[in-house]
Write a protein that binds this DNA or RNA. Structure first.
Lengths: 208, 208, 208, 208
DNA sequence: AATGAATGAGATTTCATTCAT
DNA sequence: GATGAATGAAATCTCATTCAT
């Protein structure tokens, strides 16, 4: 018995190791163009071995994106705080998001790339988006906000989630570009983020 | 006499033809992965001929992106209307943008991909972004708005431009996904766009 | 244990196989213009496989040239014979050289093509010519000859080596041409070589 | 009448212009890899026009080689001097050759490349080598030398010509390499040429 | 005669994936 | 399970030559 379980655990462990190495590799100099050979070398595994754990290269990137999203979700979930109003939580949420993107820019671009990926729920046939967990958190906050009256309720929750998420990713995308570009824009990173949230916040609050 | 001019015109015409065919090809089934061979076939030109007009595949996509941006700019510039307030023009602007993206989703994705591309001004060495013309329009409107008091002035013009543009692209990006995704979101395209602009508008207006 | 060694040996074997096939191919009808596709076909390997053993086409030709030079060196080194005078050894040397070129005309043309190739000594940074080993042998013989008084000593060893080698290659080049040409010349191969050596020999002997 | 002649003269003139430009081009940075486009540009002619004067690229290089050979022949023919012995004339001949190669290294490499080219005599069907005129001069000198007893007569004229010419080209080939190579050899250009002629001269003189 | 746009075969190289050991 | 040699489709780009104007 225990043997089988150990095997499974070991397999999962190996998978994680690969993923970790892949994370470093793909966020490195070669970017997403790093090859499976590169990955084999830096995991110190055979190239064929990689295919025992992942069906193809794409699935590795996808798994990395998922990992990134989980990380983001964890951080965001700490924001959930019933003692705060919805709008306050959105603000906190923004802070977390920005920090995350600054600390883990690679996961940022992965999320950017895979946020539209559709997964199938393990048992059910239900389709769900990879970013679903993150959107759920946003949804909860907004719901709270509409309930406590701090957030406008003339737009449905789902729509608001989609809007906020889209805008956030858009800003992220701009910020994730080379610094050169922001220099041409003649703008300051910090200010864009703050401005973005200011606009969002003023725009979300319910009008009295 | 006119011979030289005619030749030049013909050359430009051919370039346009190629670009047009490329537009159709790349927006088609194979997407941007369509090969130069594909393009040669569908233009009914030799592969070498293509390289007579464009130095490489990338430059074709870039030219397409530029074409898309010019189209967008033209449409947006019709919005400029001094008889309206800044905030009203932003609203009109949004309508145009959304219509454009719905009608020309392929150009949308190209703009999305190349918006960060840096061009060099023809004579000057000055670098400028491919989307500069569009940003200029946004800038003018916002300036008008800050002047006429309809738009908040606690954020600089440049920052506001960057923010608005980023958010718009973000929304665009979401909308440009497969419909399947929006179904999963359980949201309606139309509503996202309207909601986006509502949030933006409330957020941009100067607080009285 | 032996596994690793066997693998290495097999790899080297395969390399040799490729090299051998390449030798036949490039000396064949198409000459050096034979393509990598041709090579893939006649080795019965995938094109990609070739690139596993050689970084590019050039390197294959280079490796062949080196192989040829080694072969030549081996033969020439058998000439070294302290019981003979320098001038006698030069004569023997010439015989070997001529025989080699007649038996392996393809290696001849490769040497002709790559004799100026500069290699870097494995560990040292020292540059050395691909033909260095052959020149070394010539040098030794000439040195012996100057010491034993059979070879003129009014010209330095290095210069003599360069001169002899150049002349030999020149003759080789002439002989490596199509037979048609020598027919036009109206001369006989055999005689050219003999004549060459006679002239050289008389020219090398020290004047008494 | 004169019209036709003028046309012919003009055509030949144009041919010469092209050849001259080609000489500069091919001896330039790109070497023989310069393209027909390059040539069209630097002749300020259309690409198609070039093909009115030469059937293909090869023929241009060939014509250049011929031009070079003619130049060399002219210089060498000045050496012919009945008041000198054959062996003296060979020495002069060597001087001319060396000077030529130093002044016109490009023609040098062309001759090297095309010396084996076979032409057909204009009217006769007789085949002859492109370098024939040069070989003729060498032949005359050697003949004189054998007659006046200054040059060994145990080797036939034709063979001697072939030998001398081959050796000379061999030395030329070595000297035409990059300087880097001669530095590795550790030898001096000047000395190689002088040494070459010393060896040759001693080797040619008839033994008394 | 002059042109130069058009051609298209063909060359080299890359890399995700497979499979025999 | 692990391996890594082998694969081969596909991609980009070049350039001598042709031919309609």
């Amino acid at each position: 018995m225990g043997i089988k379980e150990r095997k499974i655990r070991e397999k999962e462990l190996r998978r994680k190791e690969i993923l970790e190495a892949a994370g470093k590799l793909f966020s490195g100099k070669k970017g997403m163009d790093a090859t499976m050979d590169d990955l084999a070398e830096c995991t110190e595994l055979g190239k064929g071995t990689l295919y025992l754990y992942f069906p193809n290269k794409e699935s590795i990137l996808e798994a990395l994106a998922e990992k990134g999203i989980n990380l983001l979700r964890k951080r965001l979930s700490r924001v959930l705080d019933d003692s705060k109003t919805g709008v306050e939580q959105i603000s906190d949420n923004g802070d977390v998001f920005v920090t995350f993107m600054q600390e883990k820019p690679f996961y940022g671009s992965l999320i950017l790339k895979y946020e539209k990926t559709i997964l199938k729920a393990p048992e059910t046939e239900e389709k769900l988006l990879m970013v679903e967990p993150v959107l759920d958190i946003l949804g909860k906050i907004l719901e709270k906000g509409q309930t406590d009256g701090s957030i406008r309720n003339d737009i449905g929750i789902k729509e608001l989630v989609a809007i906020l998420w889209s805008q956030m990713l858009g800003v992220l995308n701009t910020l994730s570009g080379r610094k050169e570009i922001l220099e041409i824009y003649g703008v300051d990173t910090e200010w864009i983020i703050r401005g973005h949230y200011r606009v969002i916040m003023s725009g979300l609050v319910s009008e009295k």
